[in-house]
Structure formats: structure tokens, C-alpha cells
Nucleic acid binder design. Structure first.
Lengths: 127, 127
DNA sequence: CACGTATATGCTCTGTAGAGTATATGAAGA
DNA sequence: TCTTCATATACTCTACAGAGCATATACGTG
């Protein structure tokens, strides 16, 4: 379970990560949103933290968890050699790049990005 | 174990996939190159085929296995929302894109490498 | 200090994935 | 046909991950 791949093989953990992508959350929030028991959430968070996927800060009795980039990069790096096999989807990558572009520099057609209070959205991941 | 993530969680399977990225191979070749027993290779290939990672054709008594793109896309798609967390490495992505452009490009005008220390750090994430 | 809240951890149980070994299938050549 | 090569599958064994439940720890409030 050192491997980042083994970590994200777990559906519950992917769900947690997907939830944290929007913003940081406390254990209790994760618990209620994903409808998992508290020990289960804590254990998964432990694994995720040990693997470097998340980090936490203390807020009174709560622990706020948020993402860390490291392991994601590792997974992404492994995928690189395979990308030539789905070059048909370069467009998705381009769309992504576009989004990225408009935040880091602006030269391509810019897209409007809203940052409103109504942000929380999907979380999915089938079981 | 349906999820593509569970499939690539297995080191041996990742090794097989990495081997097949260069070209197709027979079971025996995989067996000797990766120093695994033949039944083990066959079983992993079975899993990989069922999951759509590879396909095989018959060559006399041999079976030649090669990659299929589908599941890789699935994994890559899942990673997309997380990419903003390692935007520090956009450049690596760009480099990749550049390479991709050379082989598959049709619509993007060739990208210019610009490197600058003035990168915008991700911040936002309200809440 | 006692109590409630928020989270972590220890323990047990169960399912299952992966390896090893033996064997079945199937094609090719004598 | 008999034999050999290449691969697939069946069976068993073992390890371990994940869930449930109970409990420990830590903080905050009265």
C-alpha cells in the first residue's frame, strides 16, 4: 500500500479525494456527505495521509483535510507513456489546458470562470 | 474488480502494461522478460483483457497481446479535476503536449515554450 | 472537574486477490 | 496419430485489506 495506485484503487478513497477537490473538509463532513461510518473515514484518511494524498490541520476538535499534489503527479507520470494510445482525446487535454491557460496566462480564448458560493457539486464514483 | 484503478493497482500488471507500450508481445516473451511464471502471466493478462486494457490475436500457438486505450482514458479522466493541484508542473504537461502536437497535431498552432518564474500560485479555494 | 463533541485507534471477522502447482486445451510437425 | 510447444484454467493456500464495533484521546464548555 505504498503505491499511489493501490491507494486510489479503493472506491471510498477516490470518493474522499473527489470530495476534497472542491475544498477542505472535516472528518464529520466527509462522514455525512459520503455516508460512511466515522472510523471508516478516519482510517481511509490515515491511509491517504500516509501516502501523501492529503494533509490536515487542526481546528479545535476538528481536523480539516485537504489535498496534496505529490502522489497525483506520480500517477500522472506513469500514464504519460500510454497517452499516445488515446491521442483521440487530445481535445480533452486541450480543454483542460485552456482552463489552465486562462489562469496562468491569457492568450487563448478565455473562458469565464465563476467563483460563487454555490460550488459544491458532484462526488459520484460508483461503488 | 471492475474498476480500472483496481487493475493497475497490481505491480505485475503495471509491469506488463509498461512492457506492452513498446510493442505487442506473446505470453512467453512477457514471461521471460518480467520473470514471472507462465500461469501468473496468463492470469494477469486475463484480468487485463476483461478490463479492456489489452486485446490479443492468435499467431499459431502464440497469443499476441497489445494495449487498448479505453481504460487508460478512464483513469486519465478521473485525474482531470485534480490537475489544478499540481499546476506548478504545467510546464511538464506542456512539454508533453508539444511532443503530442508534433505527431497528432491538426488544430493547435504550435506551442511556444515560455518559462518564467512568475507563475501564479493557486490560491482561491474559498471556504 | 465533569460532560459532550470530534476524531483516532485497537481488535475481530470475513472476503478475496495473487502465487504455486498441476493439468487441460489446442495447434503444429514428425 | 503421437508428440511437443504455447497458453489457459482449476484448485488450494495464505495474506491482507476493509468494515464493524468498542474504546481511547483530545479539545471545549459549563
Amino acid at each position: 500500500m505504498e503505491s499511489a495506485f493501490a491507494i486510489i484503487a479503493e472506491p471510498s478513497r477516490r470518493a474522499i479525494l473527489s470530495l476534497l477537490v472542491s475544498s477542505q473538509h472535516s472528518v464529520g463532513e466527509i462522514e455525512s456527505r459520503l455516508r460512511m461510518t466515522q472510523p471508516t473515514v478516519s482510517k481511509h484518511l490515515r491511509v491517504l495521509r500516509d501516502a501523501g494524498f492529503v494533509e490536515s490541520t487542526v481546528d479545535a476538535q476538528r481536523r480539516l483535510y485537504r489535498l496534496k499534489p505529490g502522489p497525483f503527479q506520480e500517477v500522472d507520470a506513469w500514464l504519460v507513456p500510454f497517452r499516445r494510445f488515446w491521442s483521440a482525446h487530445v481535445d480533452a487535454l486541450e480543454r483542460h489546458l485552456d482552463r489552465m491557460d486562462q489562469s496562468t496566462r491569457k492568450k487563448r480564448k478565455s473562458r469565464k470562470r465563476r467563483r460563487g458560493p454555490n460550488r459544491e457539486r458532484d462526488k459520484g464514483e460508483t461503488k
